[in-house]
Design a protein around this nucleic acid. Structure first.
Lengths: 134, 134
DNA sequence: CGAGATTTGTGCGTATGTATT
DNA sequence: AAATACATACGCACAAATCTC
């Protein structure tokens, strides 16, 4: 049960609890969080408050949700290494709606935006690639 | 007014309208979106639906919200250029809750995580820095 | 194959709090 | 002080996806 602390939103406190459970390994990667109904009872809050808490973790890329199934701690796959050509510029941002659809990018996952010296550019999902400096 | 399309959530359709207005320049960087109340009337939806639409744009880093003030199209500041030392590895991810507080990172803004050859690492807000390949 | 149970998604309503002007 | 605008929290109902029997 959550004892509401002044100055912090209820859902933020629930999110903090869940984050703690994830970081400590009590809920390891690939494993589900409790169901929304269970968390409601566990923390003594409404469903919307639970959902907002989970939404925070989703935006952080910490949790992935499948409708009708559950909310799972995201696993970190091995990253493929990129080394863009000299003179390239690399930025990072959240994907556009189109990029998320086309590249199948999950919530809370940014993209690398690699601009080549010739001006061409491409997006790479940051949960699949890393950049190596030559 | 939104004519609900089957297969797409109402709030996603509202978000698409706003995205279009932003990309077309009809609502330029630094300028506010209509207020929630106005959008409710404009699109004929509930306040929660409007808020969910705006939440999408916030998660995309497209819009920044100030309580009691309004929702503004985010401006893109000039980026400072980094060139990590040879052998460094650069990843990108959403900031942790702590990093967001410490570094003053806004919603929908990822961080570069630069791991130096000696193993030390630091986060850089991706709306303030870019990486240049040597 | 279907039926039902479980779980997350969407949409609306209401009330109150907090920040800014 | 008042008005405006966004934030939090609860409630309800139904939809959609998934799983089990």
């Amino acid at each position: 049960m959550i004892n509401p602390q002044p100055g912090a939103a209820l859902y933020a406190q629930v999110a903090a609890e869940l984050r703690k459970d994830i970081r400590s390994g009590r809920i390891p990667p690939g494993k589900p969080l409790p169901s929304e109904k269970t968390m409601q009872q566990q923390y003594g809050v409404s469903r919307e408050t639970v959902r907002k808490a989970v939404a925070l973790l989703r935006a952080e890329g910490l949790v992935a949700v499948r409708q009708g199934h559950g909310s799972y701690v995201r696993e970190q796959p091995d990253l493929e290494t990129l080394t863009p050509p000299a003179g390239s510029e690399v930025t990072a941002r959240m994907p556009t709606a189109e990029e998320r659809g086309q590249l199948g990018i999950g919530e809370g996952v940014p993209v690398f935006w690699i601009i080549h010296p010739d001006g061409s550019a491409r997006a790479y999902a940051a949960d699949q690639y890393s950049i190596r400096m030559p």
